[in-house]
Design a protein around this nucleic acid. Sequence first.
DNA 1: GGAACAGTTCGGCGCCGCCCGAACCATCCC
DNA 2: GGGATGGTTCGGGCGGCGCCGAACTGTTCC
Lengths: 224, 224
Amino acid sequence: MPSLAETAGLFADRTRSVFCQALLDGRAWTAGELARYAGVRPSTASEQLSLLIKGGVLTEERQGRHRYVRLAGPEAAALVEALASYAPDTARPQNLRESVRLSAEARARTCYDHLAGQLGVVLADAMIARGLVATDSGTAVTAAGRAWLADALGYEQPPGARRPLVRNCLDWTERRPHLAGALGAALCATALQRQWLRRVGSGRAVEVTPQGTGAFRDLLAVTV
Amino acid sequence: MPSLAETAGLFADRTRSVFCQALLDGRAWTAGELARYAGVRPSTASEQLSLLIKGGVLTEERQGRHRYVRLAGPEAAALVEALASYAPDTARPQNLRESVRLSAEARARTCYDHLAGQLGVVLADAMIARGLVATDSGTAVTAAGRAWLADALGYEQPPGARRPLVRNCLDWTERRPHLAGALGAALCATALQRQWLRRVGSGRAVEVTPQGTGAFRDLLAVTV
DNA sequence: GGAACAGTTCGGCGCCGCCCGAACCATCCC
DNA sequence: GGGATGGTTCGGGCGGCGCCGAACTGTTCC
């Protein structure tokens, strides 16, 4: 059994922590993707990934010449989330503000590059209900979904893209899946850019703006 | 807002992690006590404590020439617990075993050097009910409690001891207090030594042995 | 005032950890 | 087979961090 210091040490490095936060989307990334994303050489990424795997934070899956890694499980993800969202609130008195922040994050927050919290779950439900995403065999974007994506968000999947368009990401507060993947990321980016959402406070919480309420109703027939 | 790596770095050191685990008992320790406990010089302890305070993990309270520190709050304690109890379970398939481990820890586990979980709470209730511990003004061991402690556990408070005999420690799973302090530590140590309890698995879970069931019934009139 | 004690600050030392480049292995594709 | 690509291993360099001892400040007690 590892000591507290050993476990913490796994995350106490910029590169490794960036890896873990990227993997919070639940996907399996290749070593090269992570290296480029974190801005380090492949050799460095390889070493750091091996440490995280040995420490039980990640698991790997070899396919041909690729090395896919993902978070080892919900506990690992919860640990990453807890460490990432730990806010010191050095001045204890304002418990009120702290609880406001936490409930704001429960309502709607970003989960690395897509949306989570109640908002993320509601949007995922709506897209499934409207037939934009199919869940019968795994998770896939339907033809209607692709059209919607191009039409509503102006997003076309770049040719040769590795990242799947859509992927379930279990929400650690809601315990229900929301949508990650390129679709989730595009939706989140568009919503922030067009000011359907704006970030509140210094954390990861977001809130729906008035025009956002209208946009989400028009696009997905949901009230948020 | 601190980065994941910064937050993790606060715990990624042997000395600082030992401090945090000691403070899991909910008490306020002085800088000198922690230094002796961790086996480092006072100057080192002073520096490391300042880092933990600046990082929002601990809070300090100066009284005369003493510097008392304690965990900053439940979130900090939860983080320490999560990091300390993170078990890799590298082989993912056995989700069953994992859930068994977690429920075993909820029933009965060690909280650094004393007992927590449902078992810890039940024992604390029994000791209060039998008048061994008084909770009217703070928490204190009664005369009967001292006699019981000497008689049942063979424990005498060493002269000049700093550590209080008993102290409430809020349980993060039960949300109710159990007993920490020298009493809790002595009880836990005795129970393990006399095989009233034994550790199960590689985590912090313990289970009550058959002779333990009898011992706890005889000592405290509780069935566990 | 003087002595004992708790804690802090500072300089310096040693080690460990992160990163890179280069060389190397394996896989895929033509 | 040959070339391109993904990944690993190894040696080396550099920086930072944790530790200590020594000197200092502040508190308590006689």
